[in-house]
Every structure is written in structure tokens, then in C-alpha cells.
Computed example of a mutant assay.
Amino acid sequence: MTFDEKVWYQDSHEWVRTEGETATIGISDYAQDELGDVVFVEFPEVGSTLKKGQPLGVVESVKAASDLYMPVSGKVLSCNEALKDTPETINKDPFGEGWIITVKLDDPAEVENLMDSATYKTYTEGL
């Protein structure tokens, strides 16, 4: 199991990586492993504004469909359109090419309420 030390984690297994006021969001290695082979990703609409905790989309796998939730609040800037043709990229590279959306953050400090990699690792060990 990989835990990226450069991202913040939410207890529903989404991660967020920030660069200034822009954030990239995806699902953790733990989440993709639990889901199994990802076969479909549903995205929010580019330009929509979503609040922390709101659904941002769905990841479907051979095992189940799982709702995705915003770890931060912001306006959707882009969706990883490549996942439409190759959703399994989430399984192969959840912290890189398997990213799901980018957003313009409403409040960059909001990430400080999320878990760092050490805390998230301990959290997943208890599941």
C-alpha cells in the first residue's frame, strides 16, 4: 500500500494535492485496492462549485460503485477525461495519472483539517 506524503487525505479516502489556489483530487491507493478493478468514473460538471463533503462523482468497479466526496470546497476547473477511456488508470497510478478533478480552492487553509499521510495510514490500519 502506498501513502503519498505530498497529499492530504479525507476519511472517505479521497486525497487532495495543492499548488497555490489549485487542488488536484483523486482516490487513495487504499481506496482503489478495496474497490478492485475500476471500470467507470462519473465526473462533476466543469465550472460547478462544490462544497466540502458534497458528492463530486462516482467510481464504479467490478465489486461496487462508490460515491466520491469533496475533501475541500472549490470550483471545478477540469476533469481527467482520459479516465473515460482508461478508468483502470486509477488502479495503476492513483496519485499520478489517475487523478480525478482539479478545483480552484475557496479556502486553501481548508486542507489543514484533513489527515497527513502518517495519520491516514494509521486510520486505514484500523479499518
Results as ranks from 00 to 15, higher is better:
55 P>V: 06
97 E>R: 12
29 D>K: 09
120 Y>A: 10
4 D>G: 08
80 N>Y: 02
58 V>D: 09
99 W>E: 08
42 E>P: 03
127 L>K: 15
57 G>I: 01
15 W>G: 11
28 S>M: 10
4 D>F: 11
32 Q>E: 11
50 L>W: 00
70 M>A: 14
64 A>I: 12
59 V>S: 07
64 A>Q: 11
122 T>P: 01
76 V>K: 00
113 N>L: 11
99 W>L: 06
126 G>L: 15
34 E>W: 09
118 A>H: 09
114 L>K: 03
6 K>G: 12
63 K>E: 12
50 L>T: 02
110 E>V: 03
78 S>H: 00
94 P>H: 05
61 S>W: 13
14 E>N: 09
75 K>F: 03
28 S>A: 11
118 A>F: 10
116 D>S: 12
112 E>M: 05
115 M>S: 07
68 L>A: 12
74 G>R: 01
57 G>T: 01
5 E>Q: 15
108 P>L: 08
58 V>Y: 04
108 P>W: 06
58 V>A: 08
123 Y>M: 10
3 F>Y: 15
70 M>Y: 00
112 E>C: 03
25 I>C: 00
18 T>N: 10
51 K>I: 04
82 A>M: 03
16 V>K: 02
57 G>S: 03
22 T>C: 01
36 G>Y: 10
45 E>K: 12
122 T>M: 13
43 F>M: 02
34 E>C: 12
22 T>W: 01
78 S>Y: 00
109 A>C: 02
94 P>Q: 05
16 V>T: 08
46 V>L: 00
67 D>P: 07
77 L>S: 00
109 A>N: 13
33 D>R: 12
55 P>K: 11
32 Q>F: 08
45 E>Q: 13
88 E>S: 15
120 Y>W: 13
105 L>W: 02
106 D>Q: 05
82 A>K: 15
105 L>H: 01
